Every structure is written in structure tokens, then in C-alpha cells.
Computed example of a mutant assay.
Amino acid sequence: MPRAAGRPFMALPGPTNIPEPILRAMDRPTEDFNSPAFEALAAGCYRDLKRVFKTDGTILCWASSGHGAWESTIVNLFRPGDAIVIPETGAFSTWWAEMAGLFGAEVVTLPGDWRSAADPDAVEDALRKDTERRIRAVGVVHSETSTGVLSDVAAIRRAMDAAGHDALLMVDTISSLASMDYRMDEWRVDVTVGGSQKGLMLPTGLGIIGLNDRALAIAREGGSPRRYWSWQRMVDLGGDLPKFPGTAPTQIFSGMRVALDMLFEEGLDNVFARHRRMADLVRLAVEEWGLELNARHAGERSDTVTAVRWPEGHDPNAFRDSLRDRFNVAVSHGLLDLAGKIVRIGHLGDLNETMILGLLGAIEANLALDGVPHRPGGAQAAIKRVASNPA
């Protein structure tokens, strides 16, 4: 196959394209991670990550993906036999529940159709039934990357309050952090799970946790055997600055400094508004093509990933492959129950209208080339929207 000219276009829901300033910041020799200069760099990153999480709590990082940050929540907070409530919203809520079960937790799964948000009423009902107070936490995926569904975290907290239960609220923000509005302290979230490779515009490599004093106190008294994932050990070793467990990936922290500066220069509210505009363009094109959005309800659609249900008799994975081979564009596939049923289009990180319009043009051309049933005009509809409502 001949070389594909131009830069590969990343329309995955993570990892995202890495902006040039961040790439240049990481293009440097490894430095002493115990030096005062690096410790000052890391301290600034930890401090400014709090602005992204919107918390006054503690930020911790590991060399891992978001799955590692998930595992830290389980081993720090749960002993075998403790219960956790996890609303089923897609593959990632399913895998988080599976992980908790492997460590001996009793998982109370609230069944879902993978097309709708976590149901606050179902959470409230599950907590009211827990008269023995065995449920330690509720775990919710904010933006379910596998389905394009967005859950209302504030509504889940209100449901927990209505039940009068003292369970912790844990939220996975891996595909929403730094791309959509998230308010850890205002929504009284106890533990937030994040990662470096999506809205933060960095390479895969950092699992990130935000936690409040209540979660840290519970971890201090309980949990399962752990060392690398120990929240308390990181806090104890580091004093004012939580100690990175092992060798710190210094280049990623150098990139993070620039990524955070870019987010704050644009302004977080402007970042969120830009992601909404990009998502609206994608959803407009999909509906114009006559294809079906997986997320049923308009208010429950993520601004970072759109899942498109594929017409019967046509292979979404074959479309994904041909789109990559013809146009150097990468979109993602369905997972678990949605394998072979959807295409997932990512629209998060450092992107603008020009990039989205090019993406939609490539997708529409490939729909025609692959003979996928659709109505032409989705890309043109997006162009008209941009022309009539310039940013």
C-alpha cells in the first residue's frame, strides 16, 4: 500500500491528536524527577489540575491509563464483600463493575439499554433498599465513551441525598474532563477518575484521580492490600505535593504544563462551548444522512463522542477500515454489546470547525463509496451551520 500523505486524522474518542506546542514541549531529554526544577513543574501541574477538576481536594497521578485509576478506586476503598452500585451505561461501566467484582466487591448493577443515561431514580431506590448500609459507593461514568451517552452527575448526587445514604460518589470523567463542564466540589463528588489522553491532549500514560478528604479518610482506614495504588502512601511520602509512585514520566509533565496553559488561555468555558459546537455539527450531519444516533435523548448526548448505529446488512468495521485506508481518517468501533453495530466518532481535544468539516466530508464520501444507505448532504448541512453561525 502506498504511503498515506498528510497527517493521520484522529477522530477517535481517545487518544486524541496532540497539538504541536505540546509535542515540542515533550521533545526534550529525560530529567531528574527528584530535582527541584521538576518538583516545581509537577507541583504547578497538580495545582492547576484542580482548576480543571473544579476541586480543592487532592490530585494524584500514576503511570497508567484510566483503567489503572479505576483500579485505585477499588483497592483503596473496598474490602471483599463491600458493595458498589454501578448504573450500566455501556462497556466502560461494565468493565468498572467487572474490576470491582474481581477484587471481591459485591456489585449491584442497575441494568441499562446502552442508549440512555444513568437513572437517578434507580440509584435512589437501590440505596433506600440498603438498610444494612453495605453499599460503600456509587460509581457513574459521566461520558460513556462506548455509547456516546452523558449522565447527569448532579442529579445522581441529588438522588443519593434523597435516599439519605452516606455512600461515596465516584465518577469516571475519562472522556469528559477538560472537554465538558464538570464540577467535582459543587456536585459533591468524592472521587473523580481521569486520564491524560483525551481532553488534556496528552499521550496515553497518566491515570489521574481527584479525591476529597472524606474519600481519603475512608481509604486510610479500609480498602484492600495495595502499594503502587495506595493514595495514603503517595500523600505521606510527598507532604504538600503527593509523591509520584516510582519513576515519573517527566516528558508528559512537561507537555501537561503546556496543555494546561492552552486550556486556561482559551478559557475553560470557551473550551466547553467549542466542544458543544463541534458535537452539534457531527450530530447534525449524522441526522441529515438519515443515520441513527445511539444516544436516544438529546439532553443525554456527549459532546466528545457520537455513536452512530449502522444500517442492517452493512459492516461498520469494514467502513472504519476503508475510511482509514482511503482518507487517513481514524474513527472507532463498537465494544461488547455494540460490537459490529456502531461507529464511534470522536470530537474532543484540540480541534476546530475546519477539522470537523473535513472529517464530515471524508465520512460522507466514504458512505457513498462503500454503498452505505444514506441521504447525501450531511457535510453540506454542517457547512451551512458554520456559515450562518461563525464562532
Rank of each mutant, 00 (worst) to 15 (best):
V75M: 10
V75R: 14
L77E: 02
F78N: 00
F78M: 10
R79I: 01
P80R: 04
G81E: 01
G81N: 02
G81K: 00
A83G: 06
I86F: 03
P87K: 13
P87Q: 12
E88K: 13
E88Q: 15
T89L: 06
T89W: 05
A91K: 13
F92V: 10
F92G: 00
S93T: 15
S93I: 07
T94R: 13
W95Y: 10
W96I: 14
A97K: 08
A97E: 09
A100T: 11
A100Q: 04
G101L: 06
L102I: 02
L102R: 15
F103A: 13
F103W: 14
E106D: 13
V107R: 05
V108P: 00
V108E: 11
T109E: 14
T109D: 01
P111S: 08
G112M: 07
D113C: 05
D113Q: 06
R115V: 03
A117T: 02
A117W: 03
A118E: 04
D119R: 13
P120S: 05
P120Y: 07
D121F: 11
V123Y: 05
V123W: 03
V123L: 06
E124W: 05
R128M: 08
K129G: 14
T131Q: 09
T131Y: 00
E132N: 06
E132P: 01
R134G: 11
A137V: 05
A137K: 07
V140S: 04
V141P: 05
V141D: 06
V141C: 10
H142S: 07
H142M: 11
H142A: 10
H142L: 09
S143Y: 12
S143L: 03
T145R: 15
